[in-house]
């Protein structure tokens, strides 16, 4: 007789193993399952994190998909639940359901150039895809990470960016909107990097993640460089509750972001990006 399948809506209890303060309002939690089991996910997917007694919110997974021993989440403290998450310390427990949603099509992009365009905390949902690309580097053409942040102090995952930049088989370009201190890097919006980036637009697949306005202009810049809409993918955020398209909180036009997204092919959603208050 088969054992009953676990209820996907029942949170698994995880314990905080590591907390990293990334930026003034951004933090990373590394959590491991209290039951000792593995956790598998695909790049681009998200979990619902429950702070017991406070509530639950969807957070993208920012860790390495090859590492099933832990889940890594990076987010900003902007609301009641994320502020409560920010208050967790090593040893605290939280509930996790997931993984939910669609993935960055990293395998479908084998043989092509990969262009990652990230803005602000949008680098977090792209990180698993970048890790995947690095682990399968010989399967891709050129790999570029184009990242924009508000100021040099707001650059997320500085160590990762430095490590990726140190490789001889990928390019990392970083720009900031406002230079501060001794910043000697590029100043300007991330779309400028897209227009300069060294990739073959006919052979490139682009993954874009950041604030929605940035994604709109980022995708337009990629199109201007010659990448077809079918090869541009974006990750959309909406207020999600159930994670499986039942509650309707995350409806976005004809889609439920939680189950049809969060990763969408740009040609399917491009028009919705310019609809006000959708």
């Amino acid at each position: 007789m088969n054992a009953p399948l676990p209820d996907p809506m029942l949170p698994r209890v995880f314990r905080v193993e590591k907390v990293r303060r990334e930026l003034s309002d951004t933090f990373t939690l590394e959590v491991v399952a209290v039951d000792g089991g593995d956790f598998a996910f695909l790049p681009g997917q998200f979990n619902l994190l429950y702070v017991f007694g406070v509530g639950a919110i969807p957070i993208s997974i920012s860790g390495d998909p090859a590492d099933r021993s832990r889940i890594v989440h990076t987010t900003r403290a902007v609301g009641a639940v994320s502020r409560a998450l920010n208050g967790l310390t090593v040893g605290d427990e939280l509930g996790v359901t997931g993984p939910f949603g669609s993935m960055w099509p990293v395998e479908a992009a084998y043989g092509r150039d990969l262009v990652f365009v990230a803005g602000g905390v949008g680098l977090a949902p792209l990180r698993p895809a970048i890790n995947f690309a690095m682990a399968n580097r010989d399967r891709y053409g050129r790999v570029l990470v184009l990242y924009g942040a508000r100021t040099p102090e707001d650059i997320l995952f500085k160590k990762d960016l430095a490590r990726w930049r140190g490789r001889f088989d990928m390019d990392v370009l970083v720009t900031v909107d406002r230079a501060t201190g001794n910043w000697s890097g590029s100043v300007g919006v991330v779309t400028n990097l897209v227009l300069k980036g060294g990739f073959d637009p006919q052979q490139a697949t682009a993954f874009v993640c950041g604030p929605e306005v940035m994604m709109r202009y980022g995708a337009q810049a990629l199109e201007k460089r010659g990448i077809g809409r079918k090869h541009i993918w974006v990750s959309v955020e909406r207020n999600m509750k159930c994670g499986c398209g039942l509650c309707g909180h995350c409806q976005w036009g004809p889609y439920f972001v939680c189950k049809d997204g969060p990763v969408f092919r740009y040609d399917r959603v491009a028009e919705m990006f310019s609809v006000a208050e959708l």
Binding site: V54, G55, I57, T75, R76, V78, G79, A80, V81, S82, P211, E212, V236, E237, R238, N239
Partner: peptide
């Protein structure tokens, strides 16, 4: 941004 639509119970 949408992530800020997080419910404030």
């Amino acid at each position: 941004r949408p992530e800020m639509l997080e419910a404030e119970p």
